[in-house]
Design a protein around this nucleic acid. Structure first.
Lengths: 212, 212, 212, 212
DNA sequence: TTCTAATCGAGACGGTACGTCCCGTCTTGCC
DNA sequence: GGCAAGACGGGACGTACCGTCTCGATTAGAA
């Protein structure tokens, strides 16, 4: 497992433009790029701050000035991926919206970086309350909020009972794909998602309003 | 993140019994215990052989004599734990058996060592094919097998349709509790398990045969 | 043979002065002191880099950054000590200068560090050409040179024959005290040095010029 | 620096002859042979008990049953060499006996094993009182005693003054050769020994009785 | 001749040190 | 004041020996 040697950094090192706080931004970008490259090359556990700094052509201090630890850096960088990969959910029926949600989630989990860092984050959470809080507020609530809105819209349309067990319903939307892809590492192809959609609708006792 | 200091090992160090080749067995046990405790405390990536040796009151060589690497040690030791914690499932109806299964799974995940080790394991699997294979064959298949037998018994009793989507059904049995307890760290109290039981039965389109 | 335990280092660890690149110099000094202390306590063969680092309150890397091996460190550090301990020799007569030389040498050998390090050095020399060369050029030639000048001055004054066997004479000046103090570990008190002075003068066939 | 591998021992391993306490003797011999071979191959510092045991085809316990440490083993084995190399001193005159003594000493110090282990012993003595006592009683007193008898014979013959400073005289006999060969590593050829003989006689104020 | 005690080779035991790498912090001098 | 560079103390890596201890087999001398 060969690492970078001195001078093998990927950044062009043009200091001259001499703008202002432009440099800091450039440094940040260079670090982010380096994190992704190193991560892909070595995996999370073997990802060393030294290698990231070397690859980015940056001092270690510049990294620690921005993030307090490898995990913090990595989870922050990851968050950007998450947001970029998330999309809007809208459609005429619960079934359509549900399918969009599941497909989006699958797309997210198919991103190799996400698939590798998510379990790391979940594993670290019980050992690291601050991280846990950050993840919960930034990622889960966000995602859960969007799913909840979808359910509420379906209730408003009469597709779902208004006394639905929302809590449990929301768990179902994330749990099965995560379990399938991250925990048991089985395939989750289109057919599986179709079957899963039907299962969820059945479990939620959904009624199709359009055909009535 | 506090580690052991010199002399803080957990083993009583009684050499005197002096029986036979008992010592080697005792050393092995001490190492296994230490692996679990260290793992729970620091996580897989930060699990150091030195800390394990220190905690077990053992020389590093004694560990390397048994396993060639951290991975080998960890995947060997891991395969022992699940079997010990698993129980039997039997009862008159699908609902009863399902409840037993869910309660057992919750008991397993409430074990702090397991709760901390499992996500680490899943995080490590995609980076480590050998470990993944070991886990899959020793743990998951075993557990999935027991759940599948439960479903088959219910089919035989007429509680489930014989064309049931078993694959998806099995996912449901593990996914939600795991998601709830390990991924999102929400509470999974008795009421939640009750609601979950009902949800699963509804999703599987189960029919209660006793009342007919 | 007790070694240092954690925290028992001899250095006060005051980082605050914060002057300039003073730190590197301070670290170097601390290592040198530690080398001498450890050497005297355990001998060259048992001198471990870890013990030196511990005693100096320094990381091992700080040592290896300065010297590539134990030998390099030791032979470099050694060459500094002799010069500091040497003194001037001057006086009206050969007898007086000779006495000064012997007393100086005794003072050197009475330094416990020197008394323990010198024989180690001589023991190591035949096994280690580089060390031998370093010692020879830095220490022995220096010392021998000063003694030779003393003899030449005595010749100029007519106290010694000009065809004196200088080689042998120089051996005599060092050999007996070393043998007495280092090899056989007998006492070398003032009376002994007086008797030795007379013996040397007799062996060299010296003539006192002042009384003529 | 290649060492022995398992099975590469030099001893034929014939247990069958089944004599009596013959085995212990055979083991002892095998160890001694192995010590010399290893020593020659690696030097004292790198001489490991494991390698000696391996080379001798013997368990480590068999060595430690005989000697308490590497140094004890080595100095014991060395002693046998010393005794074998020592000879008698006898002749008609002090000059002749003195020459014999010096030549014998040179022969001893020319033995590479002796030349390497003697300084090790002297270096270890101040750190190891037991070893010091053993060396002093077994080696030095022995040797010093033989030299003293030579001086007494010379006094009886009238070649030396009866009020001779014996202490100092004895030092001279050992000091210069040791200094020359072991400490400064200069050559000590026949011419040097001749000159040294003359120097000693002059220092002792010896009178040749045969020509008078 | 049988039994008991000692010794054998083998190798596991708890340790220490090796020289290297990386951690996260701190210092320096350039820009 | 942020930057890159890199030294700092620290700790873990996997290996080699240390000196001790345990093992079952072999050998010893006394009963």
């Amino acid at each position: 497992m060969e690492r970078n040697r001195s001078g093998e950094n990927d950044e062009p090192r043009r200091r001259s433009p001499s703008g202002a706080a432009v440099m800091q931004e450039r440094v940040t970008r260079a670090i982010e790029r380096a994190v992704f490259r190193e991560w892909a090359a070595t995996g999370y556990a073997a990802l060393s701050m030294e290698a990231v700094a070397r690859r980015a052509g940056v001092g270690k201090a510049a990294i620690y000035r921005r993030w307090s630890s490898k995990l913090a850096m990595v989870s922050d960088v990851t968050t950007r991926v998450d947001l970029r990969l998330a999309g809007r959910v809208s459609g005429g029926s619960l079934k359509e919206e549900l399918a969009q949600l599941l497909w989006q989630f699958r797309r997210l989990l198919r991103n190799p970086l996400v698939a590798r860092i998510l379990p790391d984050l979940h594993a670290e959470m019980p050992r690291n309350p601050e991280l846990a809080a950050a993840i919960r507020s930034n990622v889960q609530i966000n995602r859960r909020g969007r799913a909840e809105q979808m359910l509420r819209r379906a209730m408003a349309r009469g597709e779902l009972a208004t006394d639905l067990d929302t809590d449990l319903a929301l768990d179902m939307l994330g749990a099965l794909i995560y379990w399938r892809m991250i925990v048991t590492h089985q395939v989750a192809d289109d057919a599986y998602l179709d079957r899963l959609t039907e299962l969820v609708l059945r479990a939620l006792d959904a009624r199709d309003q359009r055909t009535s």
